[in-house]
């Protein structure tokens, strides 16, 4: 057995700063809220609140690992939410987008995920084959998705969703919110993909050195395309779950989510210089920012100051990460 010395604890802490930080925050917040934040209900709330963001952050996280970026995330999630919601409205609702339409619940899910996949393909194509800088390509698709969202919804709210659709995200399995299960599946899938398949290794290789990847027989374009496609599918799922959770979707749904997701992935240790990032890290990044949100709401911190604190934490996390990497 390895002896637990002060040094080995220190080493563990510096190798796993993300996890240690998160654990420390849980403890501190628990003390500050007099145990209120440690109750099951608080954990359920935190998990539900962060689930959609977690899926989005996983998607953009693997893109960042390839040294890309995706600004279209928020608008695509919003568009997927709108499309999915529009096919899940109660048939007798007068302001329904398709009055009288009554499809099985699988239809809106597939439609939402499908729209996400299409945008993923479009982004991937523009970046990999069109050779556009990812920032610009996804800035374009972001604007397109925002426009489509307005056109599709006629700028009004798609509401009155069926109960069997809402229960997808709002339901519980015992004490565990359904949302947690979906995220767990996505995390497991991506963890296996990134660590135990050649696709994952190739994603890291492309991010680390695309030229060397090409020499090693990796078709960089095709693999890059796959990454954006996977991210698109994740956004699609996120959109479906978001509309199911809110029981509605409109043109504002998903706005600015790209910033939260990119911040979470970054805080979770995904490097914007490519080739570095762990699935577990992204999850911890989402939870860390989520816990800060949750804690500040719980403690009644003014919303304006919440933004300040979040901003500082993002900058500090990245700064220290870069110094550690240097």
């Amino acid at each position: 057995m390895k002896q637990l010395t002060r040094k080995s604890i220190g080493e563990f802490a510096s190798k796993n700063t993300g996890y240690v930080t998160f654990a420390a925050m849980v403890v501190i917040l628990g003390v500050l809220t007099g145990g209120g934040s440690l109750r099951l209900l608080s954990w359920q709330n935190l998990a539900i609140a962060e689930a959609v963001r977690a899926l989005a952050a996983l998607g953009v996280g693997i893109i960042i690992i390839t040294k890309g970026i995706d600004l279209s995330l928020g608008q695509v999630v919003g568009l997927c939410a709108c499309v999915s919601a529009s096919l899940a409205q109660t048939p007798d609702y007068v302001s329904s987008l398709y009055p009288g339409l009554n499809l099985p619940v699988i239809a809106p899910i597939l439609a939402g995920v499908g729209v996400g996949a299409l945008f993923g393909l479009l982004n991937g194509f523009l970046v990999a084959y069109g050779k556009l800088p990812p920032f610009i390509a996804t800035l374009g698709t972001m604007t397109i998705a925002a426009g489509l969202q307005l056109i599709y919804t006629h700028a009004s709210t798609v509401g009155s969703l069926k109960n069997e659709y809402k229960v997808i995200a709002q339901g519980f399995l015992g004490p565990i919110p359904n949302m947690v299960i979906y995220v767990a599946i996505a995390v497991l899938f991506l963890w296996v993909l990134m660590n135990h398949t050649k696709i994952g290794k190739r994603i890291y290789a492309i991010g680390g050195n695309p030229t060397a990847a090409r020499v090693s027989g990796i078709s960089v374009k095709f693999e890059t395309m796959k990454v954006y496609l996977m991210a698109g599918v994740l956004y699609g799922i996120a959109g479906v779950l978001l509309s199911s959770r809110l029981g509605l979707a409109n043109a504002l749904t998903g706005d600015n989510m790209e910033l939260d997701a990119i911040a979470a992935a970054t805080v979770g240790g995904v490097s914007h210089s490519g080739g570095v990032g762990k699935v577990g890290g992204i999850v911890v990044g989402v939870l860390t920012l989520g816990l800060i949100n949750f804690g500040m709401t719980y403690l009644g911190v003014d919303s304006y100051y919440q933004l300040l604190v979040k901003g500082f934490i993002i900058i500090a996390a990245v700064y220290l990460d870069m110094r550690r990497a240097a």
Binding site: T21, L32, M296
Partner: peptide
């Protein structure tokens, strides 16, 4: 980073308290 986040949270908590 650990210390920073500690500080940030303490700061926030202090303000809240």
């Amino acid at each position: 980073r650990l210390m920073f986040v500690f500080l940030a949270v303490l700061l926030v908590a202090g303000a809240a308290f």
